[in-house]
């Protein structure tokens, strides 16, 4: 490539600078979680683990965490099912409106969250409330699943495209029926794609706040909702900051898992 020395240096500088901008704010949150000053005076006058202890004791944080996990597990399970079904339909069959199916699945994340939020809120209240079902964890899961389908869909679609149908045809030629082929051939080959898509869906749901605001009833509080409610309360600031710091540290986990998956991929393909 015909790049001058200056151009190379500038590109490297842009990369380093960009990564710096991405990480510095997060590092400051981490530092502030042990900042002895209650109002995050800078530079910190000293360090303390007091706020971590306070956050650990907080019942509100714990309840919110449990609710978030429940919602994310529910939404991920539904997304895995619907995303896989749709990906098979789109990749293995040609039919009228196939393009529209892909578009329809992208739509819930392509449209602004608040639109999906109020549309679902309106629908839930009109359709479910006459049956005595009010907004709650169930409606949160339904809302989250709607925009999580796309992550599973995309991962499974890409995997199916790469695999082709020849191995499944071989299985059928050897006498395995549709179900057996799926169980012994197709599913094992898709497992890591499902894991990757499911992981993304889980993270998307765990982090979501806008659709959650409109689909959660009064008593249901996910972790993002809890953070948002307490963000503007000065006396809660240190605990909010600890929760934020903990979430930053936890965000390494899915990356680690994803790397393990792709590591396994690299050795088996």
């Amino acid at each position: 490539m015909n790049l001058s020395r200056t151009a190379r240096a500038l590109l490297w500088a842009a990369l380093a600078g960009g990564l710096g901008v991405v990480y510095v704010p997060l590092l400051i949150v981490l530092l502030n979680s042990v900042n002895a000053d209650r109002t995050f005076g800078w530079p910190p006058p000293g360090f303390t683990m007091r706020w971590w202890a306070a956050a650990w004791e907080s019942g509100g944080v714990r309840d919110a965490l449990v609710t978030s996990l429940q919602a994310a597990v529910g939404a991920t399970a539904i997304a895995l099912l619907l995303g896989t079904m749709a990906a098979f339909a789109v990749q293995r069959y040609s039919f009228f409106g196939r393009e529209s199916v892909s578009l329809l699945i992208v739509l819930p994340i392509a449209l602004p969250g608040i639109v999906t939020g109020i549309a679902l809120n309106n629908a839930f209240r009109t359709v479910l409330e006459p049956f005595g079902v009010s907004l709650g964890l169930f409606t949160v899961i339904v809302g989250h699943a709607t925009f999580c389908v796309v992550t599973v869909f995309n991962n499974v679609l890409a995997r199916l495209r790469r695999l082709g149908a020849s191995i499944e045809e071989a299985s059928a030629d050897l006498g395995a029926d549709t179900f057996t082929t799926f169980r012994l051939v197709t599913f094992p080959m898709m497992r890591s794609a499902l894991l990757a898509g499911g992981l993304l869906a889980f993270a998307l749901s765990f982090d979501e706040i806008i659709v959650t605001t409109f689909t959660a009833g009064a008593g249901v509080r996910t972790l993002p909702i809890w953070i948002f409610e307490n963000l503007f309360r000065p006396n809660q600031a240190p605990v909010v900051n600890v929760v934020a710091a903990a979430l930053i540290i936890l965000s390494v986990v899915p990356i680690y898992v994803a790397q393990r998956i792709s590591g396994v991929e690299a050795t088996t393909h």
Binding site: F40, D207, I227, L231, A244, L247, I255
Partner: peptide, 22 residues
């Protein structure tokens, strides 16, 4: 580098907005 770019994506939206508030 891909990991370095991906990691903050998993950090919560609110946490990042909050970081800028601070």
């Amino acid at each position: 580098l891909v990991i370095a770019v991906l990691t903050p994506l998993w950090a919560s939206y609110l946490v990042k907005a909050y970081a800028w508030r601070v």
